[in-house]
């Protein structure tokens, strides 16, 4: 864990490009609950930056503060050089927010939604219509332009929602869980759209509870849990945080799984994580020699192994190692509360 220290240093100290977002000690309470409990964040311009965490970790609260929708209880932040609290209007002029739930008027058509927003930004009659049509074409929604949004599929709605955030090219685009609730194909579509957008130079701050999403899109990832940032770095750095030697074992007989987990834990001295289906165990092994010995111990105990592999941890495993619980389980626990 000795490479945690350089990672936790604010990026500002080694920055060469100006920052799109710089936050220090942001706090926001809701009654007794500390939704965000002292978060520092530095996001360089032009980067896709992911806030990764389970439900209830404080992601949405953080993004709503940075988008001026919530006032922080403590801490300071600048967005595109403007102070969040002192110059909210200037911040709003340089950001766009695509919230967790489609922020569109369902009764209006796609085109009318975009025209309304264009008019609010100050485009007049014909310019507003031209801007709407331009965006509809770029997002492949021209055919659906005159349909009411309530008849849109989830994927189309998301595309329109993101198009609505680009009426004026924002300095920072906030995307709160951009693919939650989408099918895999629509999710791929949104991902490629986000990558393309980033190529135009827009800074993108997205939140996600999908480790794969952060891994796929983001140049840097901040992992947050219970309102605190517990790690930050590139996907590679985060994986390196808990060592590269990860042993994955699948016992042939599912009945052996508990016994196998006990043996691995005793041998390797590290917490064992079960896969979602419960058929596979993952544990940090340190070196291949340690892994080999652990496997031999399993054999010696008479546990048949159908499959094993050694490799880098997935972000799931990183999350487990950092928080002590799997992201998915925590999800369910918080949903149940």
């Amino acid at each position: 864990m000795n490479d945690t220290t350089p990672l936790k240093e604010p990026l500002a100290q080694k920055r060469t490009t100006p920052l799109a977002i710089s936050a220090r000690g942001l706090v926001r309470h809701f009654g007794e609950v500390k939704a965000v409990d002292g978060i520092d964040l530095d996001v360089p311009r032009g980067m896709i930056f992911a806030i990764l965490g389970p439900n209830g970790a404080g992601k949405t609260t953080l993004i709503r503060m940075l988008a001026t929708l919530l006032k922080p209880d403590a801490g300071t932040a600048t967005v595109m050089g403007h102070d969040l609290v002192a110059e909210p209007h200037a911040v709003r002029a340089s950001i766009a927010l695509t919230g967790q739930f489609a922020s569109l008027d369902e009764d209006l058509t796609a085109r009318e939604n975009l025209i309304l927003l264009a008019r609010l930004w100050g485009f007049r009659g014909r310019e507003a219509k031209a801007r709407a049509d331009e965006l509809l074409a770029a997002f492949e929604l021209a055919d659906a332009a005159k349909r009411q949004v309530k008849d849109f599929s989830g994927g189309m709605r998301r595309r329109l929602d993101i198009a609505a955030s680009l009426i004026v090219t924002p300095g920072v685009l906030f995307l709160d869980e951009p693919t939650t609730g989408l099918d895999p194909k629509a999710r791929q579509g949104v991902w490629s759209m986000i990558r393309e957008l980033a190529r135009t130079g827009v800074t993108i701050l997205l939140t996600t509870q999908y480790l794969e999403e952060a891994d796929q899109l983001a140049a840097r990832i901040a992992v947050i849990d219970h309102g605190r940032k517990i790690a930050e770095g590139t996907s590679r750095e985060l994986k390196a945080l808990i060592g590269s030697g990860f042993l994955h074992v699948a016992p042939a007989d599912p009945a052996d799984i508990d016994r196998a987990a006990e043996i691995l834990e005793a041998r390797l001295g590290a917490a064992v994580q079960r896969s979602a289906e419960g058929a596979q165990l993952s544990v940090m092994a340190g070196t291949p020699r340690d892994a080999n010995e652990a496997l031999s111990a399993l054999m010696a105990a008479g546990i048949e192994i159908s499959d094993f592999s050694m490799g880098s941890p997935s972000l799931d495993e990183v999350f487990f190692a950092l928080t002590g619980q799997p992201a998915e389980d925590q999800d369910r626990k918080e949903a149940a509360q």
Partner: peptide, 14 residues
């Protein structure tokens, strides 16, 4: 959805 091409959009100022 590969034809979706926000990258071709010009930067638009307010």
């Amino acid at each position: 959805m590969s034809a979706v091409s926000p990258a071709t959009l010009p930067t638009v100022k307010a």
